[in-house]
Design a protein around this nucleic acid. Sequence first.
DNA 1: AGGATTTGACCAAT
DNA 2: ATTGGTCAAATCCT
Length: 218
Amino acid sequence: MMLMMESMRSQQELLMQLFDDVIGCNVSVASKLEGCLIMSTTGDDDDGPADDGSDQEQAKPNNSAGQKGRRNDKQRSRALVTHVPHYDGHQWRKYGQKNINGRQHPRNYYRCAYRERKCLATKTIEQQEQNNAGTSSSAIAGVENAKYTVVYYGDHTCKDHNISMVQAPQQQPVNMDLQNGEMAQATANVQEPETDLDLPALLEVFDNSLVDWDDGKM
DNA sequence: AGGATTTGACCAAT
DNA sequence: ATTGGTCAAATCCT
């Protein structure tokens, strides 16, 4: 039994490592494409309210840093939809939760855990409402199928730490272990019921992120 | 005990 | 006045 656990654990670590690697690449590519994405994201300035329910964030463009109010910068936002909103290769700290009018689920606000390192990246996670025809599908199944809209704001100036892992991933197993644990914790703390890593779900993240990256406005 | 999360209040933009 | 983003004290968790 122990051996099995160990085996699973090392598999998870390997998975996390691979995941981190790919995410690192994604982040890199995303940064490079950001210019283009910004164009497409901000292009919908006066976009009509032709949405209903499936819409997501409504970040306001004003950014007077230092103020308490809204300072998210829509111009640098990137949205994606995923089943596992926490596995993005970064450490986040939750700093707020808000019920958005007309929304079924609250919006969660996260900032980079390395904020002290001058990393100003933030993100919001909001569970998408899904209209199960209210059939016999249990609530658990509903949660399992739950999708989350994740919107990233700002850049990860701390991402260098993680990128370095991509370059020399094997050299610090302790770091790996720590990250794994923290990730699991973060997962458990929000609405994610799963405590174990789900390979299909992770793969889906990749898939979705690739598909949805330029879905920044939706 | 220290760190992370929760939650209500505060503030700015609309 | 309303809404959404952030702060910060209280609470929870390890």
